[in-house]
């Protein structure tokens, strides 16, 4: 028993050693669940590794947590979608070399019957105002994610404080779970198009897109390196190589080539 245990332990130690041997070209990227759940990384990272020789380990959490992990120096690079927060933290000196990489958009979805009658509205803010006055449920991420931040921004512009209202459910879960809850409750919610398409494809939610195409619903993704002056052990050079690949013509073309199973493009490259 003990020998078998010892064997396992030695195996584990050697596993750790082997992984540190390769650690030279390994960087850690804090990113968001929506990016991971769309399948983008599984498609993109092998190409990155082939092109730059860098293996990127992705820790996928909410945008709030990803930024915090980067700030603390527990990642080398951060790939999120909360441009205002990102720029603020660059100004505060936590991150450097921030670049726009790609965008997709948010959509407001709801039950096909559309009890709040918002379908086809042009402005997300107006749709939110209408939702708050009709007797319908709105499911919110409530988790500090980029999607949640966008939602709060829309409520703010609409001069509505939804917190604590009976029709407003803060579920504190990822996008997929939030959509599922909205589906079960015949409620409305704000979602990124990537997760919406992926989930709709697999689970056939009984929901449809209500509002889309508003500039307000634009979802910009950015990448930035942890400031090596703040945390001297971060792999800044390698992080920069990863960033440079993402914003290079080849990287941009690769991102544009990523589609969901029906061939719809999920992310639109827009690096300058």
């Amino acid at each position: 028993m003990r020998f078998r245990g010892l064997f396992l332990f030695v195996m584990l130690l050697s596993l750790c050693t082997v992984s540190t041997l390769f650690a030279k070209t390994r960087i850690r990227c804090a990113s968001t669940t929506s990016t991971q759940n769309s399948g983008l990384f599984e498609y993109l990272l092998p190409i990155v590794e082939k092109d730059t020789g860098i293996k990127v380990d992705v820790v996928a959490v909410g945008t709030g947590a990803a930024l915090e992990i980067g700030k603390r120096g527990d990642a080398d690079v951060v790939f999120v979608h909360a441009k205002d927060d990102e720029l603020k933290m660059v100004r505060e000196g936590y991150f450097v070399d921030r670049h726009d990489v790609m965008y997709n958009d948010f959509v407001i979805v709801g039950p096909p019957g559309d009890p709040a009658d918002i379908k086809g509205m042009k402005k997300a803010v107006n749709a939110f105002r209408k939702l708050s006055t009709e007797k319908v449920i709105f499911v919110s991420r409530g988790d500090n994610s980029g999607t949640y931040k966008k939602e709060l921004k829309i409520w703010k512009i609409a001069h509505i404080d939804p917190k604590g209202r009976k029709w407003y459910l803060e579920v504190g879960q990822g996008m997929g779970k939030t959509l599922r809850i909205a589906n079960e409750k015949k409620a409305y919610t704000l979602t990124d198009r990537g997760t919406w398409l992926a989930l709709q494809d697999k689970e056939h939610l009984d929901m449809v897109i209500m509002v889309q195409g508003d500039k307000m619903l634009f979802n910009q993704y950015g990448v930035m390196a942890v400031n090596p002056l703040k945390h001297k052990y971060v792999k800044y050079k390698e992080a920069l190589r990863f960033i440079n690949f993402l914003i290079s013509p080849k990287g941009q073309k690769t991102i544009a080539g990523f589609t969901e199973s029906h061939g719809e493009q999920l992310f639109h490259p827009d690096a300058k």
Binding site: G5, F9, L15
Partner: peptide
């Protein structure tokens, strides 16, 4: 395999 290694090592220790 990783699950077994991690839990195995943890349990032995």
């Amino acid at each position: 395999v990783l699950s077994l290694l991690v839990s195995g090592a943890a349990i032995v220790i």
